[in-house]
Design a protein around this nucleic acid. Structure first.
Length: 417
RNA sequence: CGGGGUGUAGCUCAGUUGGAAGAGUGCACGGUUCGGGACCGUGAGGCCGGCGGUUCAAGUCCGCCCACCCCGACCA
C-alpha cells in the first residue's frame, strides 16, 4: 500500500478531547474516526489491525471446536420477552426501533436469546450435543456514558461464543478449554503478560464467572490481584469469604486498574429453560440444554494493546496484529533514480508476499516521514535513500539503532521478526 | 442520571469594554531545501454548535436546547 493513497492521514495535533493514549494515537494516526460519542469508524489501518485480532480469535475458537455463524442485528422482542429481558426495567441498555407498521424491534445488545431460540431447531437429541457456535457481530448498547475512545462504546464488534452441552460436566470441560483458548488469544495479541484470570460475579446459576482483566491505568475496572498466582478478584465480589474461598493470601493482594478484555459465563439453563431448548437423552427423557457464553471485544483488545505498547511518539504494534509487516520509507524520491530504487524495493517485498506500507510521498520532509512511522507503529521500518546505496536500512520500532542490510538478507530478517 | 468543563477555518487554538472574523498548522500554486515535522511568497478555506431574546450594533450579554470531554453512579 502506498501511503500517499491511503485513506487515513496522520494528524500533527492531538485530538482535543481524548485523554486516553489509545484514543489519542489511534485517532492521530488515522486508524479510527469518531462519528459520534461511542461510535467509531475504522479506517484502513484500523481495520487491518482489527481484522488481525479477529483472525487470532477465530483461529483459537475454531481450534476448540467452535463453528462460526452470523446472527442478525435486528431482533425479535418475543424471544427476549420469554426471558424477561425485553423491558427497559430489566435491561436498560436497549436500543429499540420500530417497523413501519409500528411493531417493536431490538438492536442486538447481545445474542443469547436469539441463538438459544435458533438452536431449538438444531438440537433435538443428545446426539446433537455438544455444539459450539460463535460469531463476530455488532452489539448496540445504550450506555449512559461512554469512555476512553474505543475502550467503551455504544456500538462495537464482539466475538461471542455459545456452548451447548448435555450436562454440567460437559460444560465444565469446555469452559476450561475456552479459558485456555482465551489465554492463547491474549498472549498472541501481545497483552498476555498483563492479563489475569479474574473471578467475578456469577449471576443466578453459578458462584463465579471469569473475566480476563488486563492491568492498565486506563482501565475502568478495579480488581484485586495476586501477582504470584496470576489470579485476580473483581472489586464487585471481593470479600473476605472469596479470598478464603480462592486460597488467596491477603498480604499478596494489590489493588489495580484493569480493562476487561474478555469474559466467560456458565449460564446453565438460564436461557434454555425459558426458551424451551431441550434434548432427549438416551433414555428418552427430556432435559434442558446446559449453556455457557464467552465474549471478547476485538476493538477493546485493540485499544488495550495500544495502552500497553506505546511510547511518547506513538504506537508500537506487536507484529501479530500490526497493520503491515514493514513500513518502507523512501527518501529524496525526486532525485536521480531514488524513486525507481524505492519502488523496486517496494515491488520486491510485494512480490514476496510481504505486507508493506510504502511512504512514497514526495513533498514531505524526512522528519515528517519518520514521525509518522513512529506514530503508526509498524514494528519494522525500512529506509531507502541516497545514503543506503544498494542496501536497505532497517530499524525496529522499539529500538533506536539502525542497521544496513542487503536485499538478500531482508526477507529472512522480516520472516524472523 | 448527578457534578464539572468545552463548542470560532480540516486540526489545535486566540478573540480585550458589545463596534470590519484572527493565528499556527494542514491544504493548493510558485521557489529554495532534503536523514527527525526546514524556509520564503501567493491563495482557497467561516451558519463563531442551534433557536430565541436584549441592543443602533452580539463570537462577546441573557434564556432554552444540542453536541463533545472528564469525574461519579450504572455496566447481561
Amino acid at each position: 500500500m502506498k501511503y500517499s493513497q491511503l485513506i487515513g492521514k496522520t494528524n500533527k495535533e492531538s485530538p482535543k478531547d481524548e485523554i486516553n493514549r489509545s484514543a489519542e494515537f489511534l485517532i492521530k494516526g488515522g486508524f479510527i474516526h469518531k462519528e459520534i460519542a461511542g461510535a467509531y469508524a475504522f479506517l484502513p489501518l484500523g481495520l487491518k489491525v482489527l481484522n488481525n485480532i479477529v483472525r487470532i480469535i477465530r483461529e483459537e475458537m475454531n481450534a476448540i471446536g467452535g463453528q462460526e455463524l452470523f446472527l442478525s442485528s435486528l431482533q425479535n422482542p418475543e424471544v427476549w420477552d420469554k426471558c424477561n429481558r425485553w423491558s427497559d426495567d430489566s435491561m436498560d441498555i436497549w436500543f429499540k426501533t420500530k417497523l413501519k407498521n409500528g411493531s417493536e424491534l431490538g438492536l442486538a445488545a447481545t445474542h443469547e436469546e436469539p441463538i438459544t431460540n435458533l438452536m431449538r431447531s438444531q438440537i433435538k437429541s443428545y446426539r446433537d450435543l455438544p455444539v459450539y457456535a460463535f460469531q463476530f457481530q455488532t452489539k448496540f448498547r445504550n450506555e449512559t456514558r461512554v469512555k476512553g475512545g474505543i475502550l467503551r462504546t455504544r456500538e462495537f464488534l464482539m466475538k461471542d461464543l455459545y456452548s451447548f452441552n448435555k450436562d454440567e460436566e460437559g460444560l465444565n470441560d469446555f469452559y476450561e478449554k475456552a479459558k485456555e483458548a482465551y489465554i492463547k488469544i491474549f498472549n498472541r495479541a501481545g497483552i498476555g503478560h498483563k492479563t489475569y484470570l479474574t473471578f467475578a460475579s456469577g449471576g443466578t446459576f453459578s458462584k463465579y464467572s471469569h473475566e480476563f482483566q488486563t492491568e492498565c491505568e486506563a482501565g475502568e475496572d478495579t480488581v484485586y490481584l495476586d501477582r504470584k498466582k496470576r489470579l485476580a478478584v473483581n472489586k464487585e465480589v471481593f470479600t473476605e469469604e472469596v479470598v478464603k474461598d480462592l486460597g488467596l493470601d491477603r498480604e499478596n493482594i494489590e489493588e489495580i486498574n484493569a480493562i476487561e478484555v474478555g469474559n466467560i459465563f456458565k449460564q446453565m439453563t438460564k436461557f434454555s429453560e425459558p426458551l424451551g431448548l431441550s434434548y432427549l437423552d438416551s433414555d428418552g427423557n427430556k432435559k434442558p440444554v446446559i449453556m455457557g457464553a464467552y465474549g471478547i471485544g476485538p476493538a477493546r483488545v485493540m485499544a488495550t494493546i495500544v495502552e500497553l505498547h506505546h511510547d511518547d511518539k506513538g504506537i508500537i504494534w506487536p507484529q501479530s496484529v500490526s497493520p503491515f509487516q514493514v513500513h518502507l520509507i523512501g527518501l529524496n524520491l525526486e532525485n536521480n533514480g531514488a524513486r525507481e530504487k524505492a519502488d523496486e524495493v517496494y515491488n520486491y517485498l510485494k512480490d514476496n508476499n510481504i505486507d508493506v506500507l510504502y511512504d512514497d510521498r514526495i513533498d514531505t520532509t524526512t522528519g515528517e516521514k519518520f514521525s509518522d512511522a513512529d506514530l503508526i507503529g509498524i514494528p519494522l521500518r525500512l529506509v531507502v535513500s541516497k545514503n543506503t546505496g544498494e542496501n536497505i536500512e532497517i530499524k525496529r520500532r522499539q529500538e533506536n539503532t539502525v542497521s544496513i542490510i542487503s536485499k538478500d538478507e531482508l526477507l529472512k530478517l522480516i520472516h524472523n521478526s
